[in-house]
Simulated scan of single mutants.
Amino acid sequence: MTEIDDVDHQLLRMLREDGRRTFSEMAPEVGLSVAAVKRRVDRLRQSGVITGFTVQVDHSKLGWSIEAFVELTYTGTTPVGEIVRTAYKTAEVQAVFTIAGAPDSLVHVRVRDIGHLQHVIDGLRRTGNVTGTKTLMILGSWTRN
Rank of each mutant, 00 (worst) to 15 (best):
S33D: 01
F97R: 07
I4P: 12
L124I: 14
E29V: 01
T98D: 04
I83W: 07
F97K: 08
M137N: 14
G76L: 00
D5Y: 06
I66H: 14
A100L: 04
V55T: 10
Q10N: 01
Q118V: 07
T90I: 03
I99K: 03
R110Q: 06
R85Q: 08
W64T: 01
Q10R: 04
R20H: 06
H108C: 04
I121W: 14
S24M: 01
R40Q: 05
G52E: 02
F69T: 03
L44Q: 02
L11F: 09
L11G: 05
F69R: 05
A68M: 08
E92R: 11
W142T: 14
F97T: 06
E29G: 07
A87V: 00
G115I: 00
G19S: 02
V120A: 11
P28M: 01
V80Q: 10
V93L: 06
D18P: 06
V96K: 04
G123I: 14
V49W: 05
Q118Y: 11
L12W: 00
D8S: 11
T75R: 09
L106I: 09
V107A: 00
V7W: 04
G48R: 15
V30P: 11
R125F: 03
V109H: 06
G123A: 15
K61V: 10
T86D: 12
L12M: 03
D6G: 11
A95Q: 13
L44W: 04
G52Q: 02
R20M: 02
V70M: 00
L11E: 03
V37E: 03
T22M: 02
D58W: 12
R43I: 09
I50W: 13
R126D: 15
F23I: 00
W64R: 10
G101R: 04
K89N: 09
K134P: 01
T86S: 09
K38N: 04
I138P: 10
G76H: 03
S105R: 10
V70T: 05
R126K: 15
R43V: 06
L44I: 01
L106D: 06
L139D: 02
I138E: 09
T131G: 13
V93T: 11
T143A: 13
R45G: 02
A68Q: 06
E67S: 15
R43T: 11
A68N: 03
V80R: 11
I50G: 14
I138Y: 06
V120D: 07
R16G: 02
A35I: 02
L32G: 00
M26F: 07
Q46L: 04
T22R: 05
D5F: 02
N145I: 07
K134F: 10
G63W: 01
R39G: 05
V37H: 04
S47F: 11
D6W: 05
V7N: 12
H59Q: 12
Q118F: 09
W142C: 12
L106Y: 10
L106P: 05
D18Q: 13
G52Y: 03
D58H: 15
E82C: 00
D18A: 14
V80L: 10
Q94C: 04
L11A: 08
S47P: 12
R39Y: 13
G63Y: 01
T143N: 12
D6A: 08
W64Q: 05
V55N: 08
R126P: 15
D104I: 02
R20G: 10
N145K: 14
V111L: 02
E17G: 03
E17H: 05
